[in-house]
Amino acid sequence: MKTPKDKKISFLFVSLPVKDLSNRWTARVTFPPASTDSTVIQVEVLDGEEKIIDKALLELFGLKLKVQNGLASLTCAQFIEGLRAERIWLHREGRESVPGGLTFG
């Protein structure tokens, strides 16, 4: 895979609607320009108030990514491999696990 040389591209994932608004989350996956299979990409994970989520587990396309200080990472190849999977969940200790999906933004 390769991304355009002149553009940074982000995909924004958001939690599905939940009763307890404090369980909302967003995860932004950012591809730098000219990314290739081996490029490591960052995932920025925030809560519903746009504050970083310190510690969590982001289940993204079958991968269980540790979120620390609001950040997780994976390679471009891993992202593309899991592209067709719908399953995106954020697990936080002491909280309800909440699924999510891609959105605009």
Partner: peptide, 14 residues
């Protein structure tokens, strides 16, 4: 509607 599209086929959303 976009969420419905995601449930149908995630690649279409990307």
């Amino acid at each position: 509607i976009f969420r419905k599209l995601w449930n149908t086929d995630p690649v279409r959303c990307y």
